[in-house]
């Protein structure tokens, strides 16, 4: 500790040449502490009077404006959701109406179709009946003709064989054959 007391005794006149740690040179402590306190007080006042309120204000403003913007965005989003819902509702309504219209049209067309089909069926049935009648008449006519021809042929055949044919017997025989 001898060097220290020497230092203090000699002041800091030759501090550069003196050994020892400058940190433990107590002759400079007063100076350092004085200027440090001045510095700290200045910094404290600069910060508390000017800087910190200003930064706090800016941060507050920003926070509130961000909050406002978020609220506005939330609002707009809500509106968009509502608009979408209305649109969807309209779409559903329109679809239902379209379904109705289609069903109506279908029913109308079905009715027309049914009517036409019924008419056509009736006509077809009438024509069929007529044709059947005609066919029956033709068939009857044909059978009669066959009978007459057969009778004539049988009489001729019998006559050519030299027998006189009994018209009644021939007719009966032809009729029996026609049935067979």
């Amino acid at each position: 500790m001898a060097s220290e007391t020497d230092n203090v005794a000699a002041g800091a006149a030759d501090a550069a040449a003196a050994p020892g740690m400058p940190q433990l040179d107590f002759s400079t402590f007063g100076n350092q502490i004085f200027w440090l306190v001045v510095t700290l007080v200045v910094i404290y006042f600069v910060l508390t009077r000017i800087a910190l309120p200003r930064i706090a204000g800016v941060l507050n403003d920003r926070q509130s404006s961000i909050t406002n913007d978020i609220a506005a965005a939330e609002d707009l989003k809500q509106k968009a959701v509502e608009a979408e819902e209305a649109y969807n509702q309209a779409l559903i309504d329109a679809r239902a109406k379209a379904q109705d219209i289609i069903a109506e049209a279908k029913a109308e067309i079905q009715a027309d179709l049914d009517e036409a089909a019924a008419k056509a069926d009736a006509e077809i049935a009438a024509r069929t009946a007529e044709s059947e009648k005609a066919i029956a008449a033709i068939r009857d006519g044909a059978v009669e003709s066959v009978k007459v021809v057969a009778k004539d042929v049988a009489q001729d055949v019998v006559a050519s064989m030299g027998f006189s044919a009994d018209a009644k017997a021939v007719t009966a025989a032809v009729t029996a054959r026609m049935k067979g």
Binding site: G11, A12, A13, A15, A16, M21, P22, Q23, D25, S27, T28, G30, N31, Q32, I33, F34, W35, L36
Partner: peptide, 22 residues
Amino acid sequence: FIVKPLFNPEGAVHWYTITNVT
């Protein structure tokens, strides 16, 4: 780390001296 007066390096360091610390 030596504390010395800013304008008169050989001078003494009083509590009010403007030093390199200052």
